[in-house]
Structures are given as C-alpha cells and as structure tokens.
C-alpha cells in the first residue's frame, strides 16, 4: 500500500531521503506544472520547482494537517517561490490563455487521482466571471488589487470588491462540498 502524503512529509521532517524521493516523484508534475503556469519559461519553472521541493524539505516539520492537505501546502510553497522570481525579474509573464483555460468548463481535466481539482473547478465556475478572474489573478500571479485594477481597467475599489466577494463565495462553496 502506498505511503500517505502525510507519512511522506513526516518522513522528510525526520530527514528520510527515501521519503523525499517518493515525495518528489509523486508531486513533480504538479509542482512543475504550477511553476510553469506562473513563470511561463520552462528553464525558470524548473528552478522554481526545485526551490519549492527544497523549501518543503526544510519546512516539513512545520506542516500542520489541520490547515490543509499536503497538495495545497506544497502548491502554496511553489506559488510563493514562483512569485518571488516574477517579482525580482519585474516581469509579468502570465498568459491570458492559461488563465482563461482555468476558467473554462471544458478545460483540460485534472490528472487521475486528483478529485479535489474537479471540486475546486466546479466551485470556481460558480463565481461571476469577473470575480473568478480577479481571484485567479491574485492567487496564482500575486497581483495586487491595484495591478488587477490597471489590468482590467476598473477602479481600485471594484478590484478589491471582486477579490473579496469572489474569495468569500469560493470559500463558502468549497465548505458546502466538504460537508
């Protein structure tokens, strides 16, 4: 029987290199995929993905399962590493097509074994389109409300409202599907 995600993280926290190898094999496509989505350049994405696994290895002892699944924890680390790189380079390489793909009901299906992605996709589709765009831009690309306002050509207050209402509604819908 396969070791659980939590078991692998616990192994990494104890310095077990075999647990780390299994963890990397299990998540490398997800981590590299997210990094590529954000930075847009394969060579940079590879650097970001490596950095994400390094941070996961260092912070494994701080993982708290009460705060979310291992996949979310690792992908959040990856997102933060990618945004660090984007901010240093002062480039905004996000592709509108990638963003629209996330919002498209007919978009690429998640990998087998990732049922949570379908649940989240359904919740995201439940949002008004403009709120979903604002939440995705902020969450994936780390855009501030001001940057979203400039990109969407809307007042700053409107951008803030879209992020707030969109995320609250997304949270509520995810909580409903959790029940």
């Amino acid at each position: 029987m396969a070791v659980t995600d939590e078991g692998l993280v616990a192994g990494m926290a104890a310095g077990d290199s075999q647990a780390a190898a299994a963890f990397v094999r299990r998540y490398q496509a997800r981590v590299f995929g997210l990094a590529l989505t954000i930075v847009g350049v394969p060579a940079t994405a590879e650097e970001v993905a490596q950095e994400a696994f390094l941070r996961a290895w260092r912070y494994a002892g701080g993982y708290d399962p009460r705060r979310g699944a291992v996949a979310s924890w690792l992908l959040t680390i990856t997102r933060n590493a990618a945004i660090d790189v984007v901010r240093v380079s002062h480039e905004r390489p996000y592709e509108p097509d990638t963003l629209l793909g996330l919002l498209d009901p007919q978009a690429e299906r998640p990998l087998e074994g990732w049922p949570d992605a379908d649940r989240v996709r359904t919740a995201l589709h439940g949002l008004p389109h403009e709120q979903a765009v604002a939440v995705v831009l902020a969450t994936f690309y780390g855009l501030t409300a001001r940057e979203i306002a400039e990109r969407e050509d809307i007042p700053l207050g409107t951008a803030k409202t879209r992020i707030r209402l969109g995320l609250i509604r997304l949270r509520d819908q995810l909580e409903v599907t959790d029940d």
Partner: peptide, 17 residues
Amino acid sequence: LAKAADELLLLAPAHEP
C-alpha cells in the same frame, strides 16, 4: 479564506518536468 485560495492552486495543469 487562505485555505480556499490555496485549494485553487490545485487547478494548475500538471506538466512532466
């Protein structure tokens, strides 16, 4: 809210490195 935002990242398409 942070948990919901983090879960959104699950939607990123996977790519083999």
